[in-house]
Write a protein that binds this DNA or RNA. Structure first.
Lengths: 138, 138
DNA sequence: GATAGGAATTGGACTCTGTCTAATTTCAAA
DNA sequence: TTTGAAATTAGACAGAGTCCAATTCCTATC
């Protein structure tokens, strides 16, 4: 599957495999997400990418994250009403969301069994299922 | 349980039962949500409540919806990255979300079985679980 | 009825996330 | 070297939601 260690080099390949032209900015944004393997908001991506020198604009960060989503390099996680998180893990999995701290943790989907879901209404196809366990400090 | 027909009168009682002082504006907002039994955004609530005469400000709509949520009269549904929906159904249930149309449909939770979820990390308690099936037109 | 005081409501300014646009820069191919 | 499409950019803009100080509304007490 994916390499153990993400480098700018193998990320460039990954982008190409998904039909994304690997520019400097796109590689840096991909590196921010994949090297951490964590859920980042556009804001956080922006801050990481511009840590050393300002090199990527807000517009590019948003353009790129939307492009990555379309090309299925990342997945959106919608749990916080104020911002979207981007998840570099595109394997089926679920989330634990701490509503106080905003912390987001993965749950492996392979162990989870869900049964008894109804038929979908006619004319639509499932795109995915999100499961979020909302928790708060005891 | 809840009355078959919601009236402004029995909604005032319902508010009181949840520790909410039933003012004119709060009753109208409750009526908008409960009489329709559908998922509304703050914007939609605002429009409904001010349909005939302008009688409730934006600040009050937001204040009231947040109060209703705290008092567990309604539940937030977070599926659309741009706005929160408020759901007058506080029984456990899940959702089908049409990402094209924005349409939100309930799934009865009692028929659904979910097993194999991991232990929660220490120091937190579950507040609820959201299940959203994202669909799009075929 | 009059008054007082806390609760609720209000307009409007403000913040924040995300989008849009027109101009500029980059880059690869010829 | 030229050229043209793709990518990036700054900054204006849009929409959801919050905040705050001022006003209005209720209710209890006299």
């Amino acid at each position: 599957m994916d390499p153990v260690q993400y480098t700018r080099d193998n990320l460039a390949d990954k982008l190409r495999q998904h039909g994304v032209n690997p520019t400097h900015q796109r590689i840096e944004i991909a590196y921010a997400l994949f090297s951490r393997q964590s859920h980042l908001s556009a804001d956080q991506v922006m801050a990481i990418v511009n840590e050393k020198h300002s090199e990527t604009s807000k517009a590019t960060v948003y353009n790129t994250l939307n492009l990555f989503r379309q090309k299925k390099l990342v997945r959106e996680v919608i749990v916080d009403p104020t911002k979207v998180f981007y998840d570099p893990n595109t394997e089926p999995h679920y989330h634990i969301y701490n509503v106080e701290s905003g912390e987001l943790t993965d749950i492996d989907a392979s162990a989870v069994q869900i049964s008894g879901l109804p038929e979908l209404p006619g004319g639509v196809v499932a795109e995915g299922m999100d499961v979020v366990i909302r928790v708060r400090p005891e």
